[in-house]
Structure formats: C-alpha cells, structure tokens
C-alpha cells in the first residue's frame, strides 16, 4: 500500500492504457511501462536460445511486449515478477506451448541454436523434444511410473530395445534423484506418488528425451518446503547437462538456483542481470520495489 507512492517515478508517468491482466496490483494507477526499454544485460555471448522482440497476444490483449532476452548455454535463468506479469507466457513461447491456445498469437523471433523456431518450416514436435517443459502442477500421466518416463523415448524412437529403454528410464529417474524411491514400484501408477515425487517424475519424464533446454514453470509452487529443497538441489545438478529457464514466485528460490535473473513487469522485461547483482543492487526502481517486497 505505502509502496504505491514511491513507485510513481518520473519515467513511469501514468497515461492510461495498462494491460488489465495485472488488475489488483496497486501500482498500475501510477505506472506505465509501455515505452520502457530493458535495463541490464539481456544478451550473452554463448546464447542457447535468443528471443527477439517477442510479443504475445491473447486475442486483443497484449500480454508480452517486445521482450528480447538470451538464455546462455548451461545456465539457469530465473524469471521473476508479480502475478500476471507475463513471465509464464514468455516461457511458454520458448517451446511454442502457446500454440495450443487458440486465441494466442506470438509475434517476434525465438532462436534455438541460431534457428528461428517460429519460422514456417519448424516442427513443434521436434522443438518440444529439444526444449522440454516441467509444469506448475505436477502432471504425471495416469499410467505407471515406468510408462511415464518411457513414453517420450518411445514415441521418438530413441530406444531400439526393451533393455535400452529400461536403461533410459533408470538413468532419467536417477538424474531426477527419484530412482531409489521408486525402483521397486515402477509398475505403480505415477499419480499415486507424493506431490514432490510426482514433480521429480515429471522432471525425469522431461529429461528422458534428452532435451537441450528445460523450461520450468513454477515447478515448486505446489510443493512443501522439503520437496522444494530437493527440486532445487536437482536443478543445481541438472545445469551441468541442460540449459534451464525457471519461472518462480519465490525470490529466495531464484536467488538460490539461478545465475541470471530477469524481472518482468506488466508484460515488459524490466531488468536482466546476474542474480547476485539483481538481488543486491537492482538497477531499476520497479525491480527494487519487487524484491524488497513492496508489492507482488
């Protein structure tokens, strides 16, 4: 409440149209970020994925505005921001998950290893095999634990024999640090596991197809602190092999797991920088207000 006065910074002069997705936040009466340019370092040298001028529309509504951001190879980048700021929408545009929403339109370019994934000749099936995803709510298939992990490799034809498939399943479950808990109950339904185990199963399912990038959309929001800690440890181990982009509501989590942090606000990418810098010396007032807990 008291923060609303402070946000009224000169560059955020209020003049009208604000995306209504952030309704409920007190700040909008005073802030308009529509002509705002990202501060910090959105671009890196060893980019695995690069987004350039990405705009996402839900029907008439513009949910993401001109976001340009690089995701470096083998780094963990955290995306934070208040509810409705478009961070999940941006994440979903990185593997074209937004395509399944009929009214959703994406404008701009996203490159994976220099290739535009929104080019006409790009295949979403191949893209999603290369850019895996873990969702907010654990969503294992209502099948056995084994089938959950084996499904991806099977449809992509990654295993040529049952033994090979068994190996992939074991390796993936081990990497998701779930193997020891489930190795004797692989034929039990995945939906019977605890929430944290289910989420690790979903991570195992994602890494079973050996993606290059893993997108995580608030993977811990439905989990208790202990399960969250395990997932965070897991993210730390996984960054050796994978590039990870994680959307999170928890700033502590962002600080713990990521190397770079991007702050989104009302569909705009406000600030990007090394995690340490963003959390200790935010360059932008909005970022500062958010991480100090004045709103969000």
């Amino acid at each position: 409440m008291q923060g609303s006065e402070k946000i009224n910074a000169p560059q955020l002069m209020a003049h009208g149209a604000v995306p209504n997705e952030a309704v409920g936040l007190d700040i909008h009466a005073h802030s308009d970020v529509s002509d705002y340019e990202t501060t910090g370092k959105p671009f890196v040298d060893n980019a695995k994925m690069s987004a350039r001028n990405v705009n996402v529309f839900y029907g008439e509504k513009r949910a993401i505005m001109d976001v340009s951001l690089d995701i470096g190879e083998n780094e963990v980048i955290a995306m934070i921001g208040p509810s409705g700021c478009g961070k999940s929408t941006f994440l979903r545009s990185l593997n074209r998950m937004n395509d399944i929403i009929p009214i959703c339109k994406v404008k701009g370019d996203v490159f994976l290893d220099g290739e535009n994934i929104y080019a006409g000749n790009q295949d979403t099936v191949l893209l999603r095999a290369r850019v895996g995803m873990v969702f907010q709510k654990p969503n294992p298939f209502p099948k056995s634990i084994y089938e959950n992990v084996a499904y991806g490799p099977r449809i992509h034809g990654l295993a040529h024999s049952k033994a090979e498939l068994d190996e992939i399943v074991e390796k993936s479950l081990r990497r998701a640090s779930l193997w020891d808990e489930v190795k004797d109950v692989l034929d039990q339904p995945g939906t019977g596991l605890s929430g944290g185990q289910q989420q690790r199963l979903c991570i195992a399912r994602a890494i079973a197809v050996s993606p290059e990038v893993i997108l995580m959309d608030e993977p811990c929001s439905a989990l208790d602190p202990i399960a969250t800690a395990r997932i965070e440890e897991l993210i730390d181990e996984l960054k050796e092999r994978f590039t990870i982009a994680i959307v999170t509501h928890s700033m502590q989590q962002a600080a713990r797991v990521s190397q770079r942090t991007a702050y989104f606000h009302l569909g705009k990418l406000i600030e990007v920088g090394d995690t340490k810098q963003v959390f200790t010396m935010p360059a932008h007032e909005l970022t500062e207000n958010y991480i100090t807990g004045r709103f969000g």
């Binding site: 593997n95 998950m97 399944i100 979403t124 099936v125 191949l126 893209l127 999603r128 095999a129 895996g132 995803m133 873990v134 969702f135 969503n139 294992p140 298939f141 209502p142 499904y151 991806g152 449809i155 992509h156 979903c202 399912r205 994602a206 079973a208 197809v209």
Partner: peptide
C-alpha cells in the same frame, strides 16, 4: 495431461 504429452514432444 494434454500439456504434459505435448511437452515431451508427442
């Protein structure tokens, strides 16, 4: 469930 399947590239 749809998202999960599409997410692994089905």
């Amino acid at each position: 469930i749809r998202e999960a399947a599409l997410g692994v590239g089905a």
